[in-house]
Design a protein around this nucleic acid. Structure first.
Length: 364
DNA sequence: TGAGATT
């Protein structure tokens, strides 16, 4: 694959919520008109490393899925951080919105809402706004732009440390024509009370950025900041991905394995061995309540890292949880951290026992 | 000069 080399922005930020003033999760259930699909969902703010299989696994825990797609960059294959899940039953789609919207996965807070019917008119309706007064809130920004159409998302970027507005933001309209009208009406204008005019223009496409970021990472010196073991492994993992994407190579089949141990999790006996690529690390969760379901496992383990699968073991006749379940996580460090944090965790009236699963890996 | 919502 021939790829252009250029120095693009070196933004590696995986944070989502903290970088915006609010997550704008305003009632996704009520959006859409009556003739819209009631089974097809769009899922936004997915973690960068989440795969289509993981997406399917997460949403499949709600009900039967007709189709599922993680949207990727056509050139680099990088996830664009969103995807679509189409259920067989509209009730499951509604349930997915109610139970999974706002779920925290790693550094992201995912958003689950009905997908609008796809059409050319809703594409390229995203605006970049700069020169905003630092005091302007997201609500005021929306008020300013809403005179030109229906706003799908809005965001004001803030300083990671101080939380103060950086005076730049994004507005996504329902339709391209609305965005065009907003540029005509607001570019170069002073918002009420402002001393400086704002700049309003179309935002960059996501694909432009990912290829730039990919290549700028290849040029970065890997050891500039002397990272600790966890960061080192994460960095190597990223490098593996980059090399794999750029050249189709995998540098080391054992790159998942880390000898690092965490307090309280020092035994490696009986857990899966490096080289069993693709299986991940299976975690045994004991003392779940009879009404426990898969979503509670996603909620508990998702924040610690990549979860590929969860399973609640149920009684065949009653369909009630038999008191235990399994969670599969991709990375050893994240699995160990989840175990160290969740073993002994009090869930309702119960104290959970969480450990690496002993003997053979559970296949769910 | 900047996140990531239309397959």
């Amino acid at each position: 694959m021939e790829t252009q080399l250029s120095n693009g922005p070196t933004c590696n930020s995986t944070a989502n919520g903290p970088s915006s003033i609010s997550n704008n999760c305003s009632s996704p259930v009520e959006s859409g008109s009556v003739e819209d699909s009631k089974t097809n969902l769009i899922v936004n703010y997915l973690p960068q490393n989440m795969t289509q299989e993981e997406l399917k696994s997460l949403f499949g825990s709600i009900g039967e899925i007709e189709s599922c797609k993680l949207v990727r960059d056509k050139i680099t294959g990088q996830s664009l951080g969103y995807g679509f899940v189409n259920y067989v039953d509209p009730k499951d789609a509604e349930k997915a919105i109610n139970t999974l919207n706002g779920l925290r996965l790693q550094t992201k807070t995912i958003k689950v809402s009905y997908a609008r019917p796809s059409s050319a008119s809703i594409r390229d309706a995203n605006l970049y706004v700069s020169g905003l007064p630092k005091t302007m809130t997201q609500k005021e920004l929306e008020q300013l732009f809403s005179q030109h159409g229906r706003i799908i998302t809005s965001r004001i970027l803030v300083d990671q440390v101080t939380g103060v507005s950086r005076g730049v933001g994004f507005i996504r309209f329902d339709r391209r024509v609305e965005a065009e009208e907003a540029i005509k009406g607001l570019n170069g204008q002073k918002p009420p009370g402002a001393t400086e005019p704002i700049t309003v223009k179309f935002a960059n496409n996501p694909s432009q950025k990912t290829s730039q970021a990919l290549l700028s990472q290849l040029y970065q010196s890997p050891n500039r900041r002397y990272p600790g073991p966890l960061a080192q492994q994460a960095q190597r993992f990223r490098l593996d991905n980059l090399l794999n994407m750029a050249y189709g190579v995998k540098s080391c089949p054992y790159s998942r394995f880390s000898p690092m141990t965490i307090d309280g999790v020092t035994s490696l006996a009986g857990i899966n061995i490096p080289g069993q690529a693709g299986t991940g690390w299976c975690i045994f969760v004991y003392n779940l309540a009879p009404d426990a379901d898969e979503s509670i496992l996603w909620q508990m383990f998702g924040p610690f890292g990549a979860v590929t699968n969860v399973k609640v073991i149920r009684d065949f006749n009653t369909n009630k949880c038999k008191g235990f379940g399994f969670v599969t996580m991709t990375n050893y460090d994240e699995a160990a951290m989840a175990i160290a944090s969740l073993n002994g965790y009090r869930l309702g009236e119960r104290v959970l026992q969480v450990s690496f699963k002993t003997n053979k890996t559970h296949k769910a």
